[in-house]
Amino acid sequence: MTYHVLVPDNVHASAVDVLKAAGDALAYTARGQITRDELLAEVANADALVIRSAHKIDKPVLDAAQNLKVIARAGVGVDNVDLVAATEKGVIVMNTPDGNTVSTAEHTLGLMLALARHIPQSHISMNEGKWDRKSYGGIELRGKTLGLVGFGRIGRAVAKRALAFDMTVVTYDPYISAEQAAAAGAAQVTLDELFAQSDFISLHALLTDETRDLVNKETIAKMKPGVRIVDAARGALINEADLAEGLRSGQIAGAALDVYAQEPPDPNNPLIHLPNVVHTPHLAASTEDAQIVVAVEAAQLVVDALLTGNYKNVVNPAALGK
């Protein structure tokens, strides 16, 4: 039997090398990012999908995928996959949680530094022919408190790098113990304590019903005045209108954002033109190093699942019994 693997996104070519190495047991279609209509048509013959974040694998796609057995996400977040519908159909969804860790952690520190030292704004000023040293005085990271909301792989990698900058690190994560936090150099606190203590807050939580709009008008009021907020996790963790209000009022000194509730953001998004916001277009995992790692891992997950029945990094384990 030959299984068919569809790669509807721009996944690194190294994924194809892994699929090709499986020989005649696998056929694949991987011509780069395709349209939604093309996906709906071509998924009908697919036994597996290797995806990034461009496509929503929702119920209509899953209904069209009569032969689909597995989905491998080249990356961590699977909020673009309808896990309930996938589980109901017995489609096993897997991710690659390790591959993006270093790239995302480094990008987070880059955003913090850009925010603290006004690097993008001063670059623009120089490009405009100005020599303005007075408008862009910054702050050091040394001696500041960094609050990490979520202390998984990426949160811990950020903590390790922040400690090298002589920052104090506190974290809120209901799924780890105080001992686990301490082993990574962080103090475990409540969410309200984190808001009150932190000079910088960096978000690393998964997007769930409980974490959606985690940063909102009420929680912003609990934060230390002049706090700086960084988000390289999921845009919907932040209520963007409330964040904009906090930035305009001065309660929040600045924000650095790599992700948005809608991507690309609407031109009328209230955060886009604020002078105290640093923006990047969802680049945290976009290093060649990370893309090779997650592409290879995702393709190997598919090969192992289809050819040997071995599953790893399953995010909807209830589907395994169907």
Results as ranks from 00 to 15, higher is better:
148 L>P: 09
266 D>I: 12
86 A>V: 12
54 A>Q: 05
3 Y>H: 03
219 T>D: 04
15 A>S: 04
166 D>P: 01
28 Y>I: 15
143 G>T: 04
101 T>G: 14
13 A>E: 09
63 D>K: 06
142 R>C: 05
322 K>N: 05
266 D>V: 14
127 N>R: 14
47 D>S: 12
104 T>E: 02
92 I>R: 01
66 Q>P: 02
205 A>F: 13
264 P>K: 01
288 E>W: 11
30 A>W: 06
151 F>C: 13
264 P>D: 04
296 V>H: 00
161 R>A: 08
150 G>W: 09
89 K>E: 12
118 H>T: 14
88 E>K: 11
147 G>D: 03
123 H>I: 10
191 L>Y: 14
94 M>Y: 04
29 T>Y: 15
307 L>V: 08
104 T>S: 02
55 H>T: 15
2 T>Q: 02
256 A>T: 01
108 T>S: 05
121 Q>N: 04
65 A>K: 07
242 D>E: 03
142 R>H: 07
209 D>K: 14
53 S>M: 08
75 G>D: 00
189 V>C: 11
238 I>S: 00
202 S>L: 10
31 R>W: 14
97 P>Q: 06
277 V>A: 02
316 N>D: 09
94 M>L: 12
309 G>L: 01
34 I>Q: 08
205 A>R: 13
304 D>R: 04
215 V>E: 04
137 G>S: 12
137 G>Y: 09
46 A>H: 12
139 I>D: 02
162 A>W: 08
202 S>W: 11
183 A>C: 14
34 I>N: 02
260 Y>V: 00
19 L>H: 08
29 T>K: 07
31 R>L: 14
180 Q>K: 12
186 A>R: 04
287 T>N: 05
73 R>L: 07
227 V>M: 06
290 A>H: 11
80 N>M: 06
263 E>V: 06
191 L>A: 13
51 I>H: 05
21 A>V: 04
269 N>V: 08
3 Y>N: 00
128 E>H: 11
243 L>A: 11
155 G>L: 10
4 H>G: 12
280 T>F: 03
150 G>E: 07
16 V>C: 09
233 A>E: 09
293 V>P: 01
191 L>H: 12
217 K>S: 15
119 I>D: 09
229 I>H: 03
142 R>T: 15
212 R>F: 10
231 D>A: 07
143 G>F: 02
262 Q>F: 05
288 E>S: 14
53 S>D: 08
311 Y>A: 14
294 V>G: 00
144 K>A: 06
293 V>A: 04
21 A>I: 02
132 D>T: 13
151 F>K: 03
259 V>L: 01
185 G>P: 09
144 K>C: 03
77 G>K: 00
36 R>C: 15
248 R>N: 07
303 V>S: 00
31 R>A: 15
143 G>V: 05
244 A>D: 03
220 I>K: 02
226 G>A: 11
228 R>Q: 13
243 L>Y: 03
149 V>N: 01
164 A>Y: 06
171 T>Q: 03
237 L>K: 10
202 S>Q: 10
268 N>A: 08
139 I>K: 06
247 L>N: 02
311 Y>D: 10
235 G>Y: 01
265 P>Q: 08
208 T>R: 12
320 L>A: 10
132 D>M: 12
86 A>M: 08
149 V>M: 12
